[in-house]
Write a protein that binds this DNA or RNA. Structure first.
Ligand code: FES
Ligand code: FES
Lengths: 144, 144
DNA sequence: ATATAAAAAGACCTTTTTATCCTTAAATAA
DNA sequence: TTATTTAAGGATAAAAAGGTCTTTTTATAT
């Protein structure tokens, strides 16, 4: 469904959101431990998320990653997927035709876009705040 | 969503079904032309589909690929995806946790399985017959 | 029997994805 | 100011996916 990079990106952002809600910055190392991901690879993904404005980064001692309250409310899973994997999953053809087009549909078009649109809507509606609170109260987990 | 191999495999099988409904066997070359795929790569995928019992293959002059009427009715898109990509998409965690488990859910579990189960059901219900007839009457297409 | 046509099989190559390592830049605290 | 800490950046490597090529096997028609 999503690339490894995207899975790590989503998990990292949720964790940063949790910590930010407690007014704590979090380091790359801590993130990689918490989401069980390769440190250097996670660094690349966080760089991209920082460039995309999804998270804030700060160098130096006491540095790390954080989100402000506006970001925690406004960033949706959809934004992270777009930033890392692009929007092909949201508007591409299920059978790989160059253009998904209702006028020239592939055999699975009608059935596929119904699912695809549900996925898109779900990801567009799901905010970091919602996912972070579920994790914070121990309802969900990022490892295993 | 699906791998390239899987996209080619689904399109190839639909085309074989259309031809089989007209009692025609179809060669690798013809399939690759019709679905706009690399010939040698398509050969590998068809080998796998033949081994999986999804299509029948015959060597020699007048050889090629075909499906019997039972197969056309019974083979579902789901079966092709399982044969080529495996079942990870149908029961794996959306965030890549080792086990998708409602008792130990990841942050997106509830929302994700709703979509994932819809996809699974849709693919389990959609037969080659249904897709082949839509293609045969010109309602859908496999290229462009 | 033999030439031919088609898929099967296996070795190989290329590109993309995933992952690591090392150096540089920036910020802080002493 | 200087040592330290942390992210940024770039080069490289390993693994997986995507794709090609050549040889072998099997079936058919002449
Ligand atoms: S054309 Fe294939 S999903 Fe729309
Ligand atoms: S645990 Fe992640 S989708 Fe079920």
């Amino acid at each position: 469904m999503f690339s490894k990079a995207c899975e790590y990106g989503i998990k990292a952002t949720i964790f940063i959101a949790v910590k930010s809600l407690h007014d704590q910055r979090v380091s790359l190392k801590e993130i990689a431990e918490e989401i069980d991901s390769p440190v250097a690879f996670t660094a690349k993904i966080l760089q991209l998320l920082a460039k995309s404005g999804i998270v804030d980064s700060h160098k130096g001692p006491t540095g790390g990653f954080q989100m402000d309250r506006t970001g925690i409310d406004n960033v949706k899973v959809y934004d992270i997927v777009c930033a890392i994997d692009g929007d092909k999953i949201f508007n591409g053809c299920g059978l790989g035709l160059k253009h998904c087009d209702a006028e020239h549909p592939c055999p699975v078009h009608d059935k596929f876009i119904a699912i695809r649109d549900n996925l898109t809507t779900m990801l567009q509606k799901t905010s970091m705040f919602e996912l972070a609170t579920g994790l914070d109260i121990g309802l969900t987990q990022l490892k295993r």
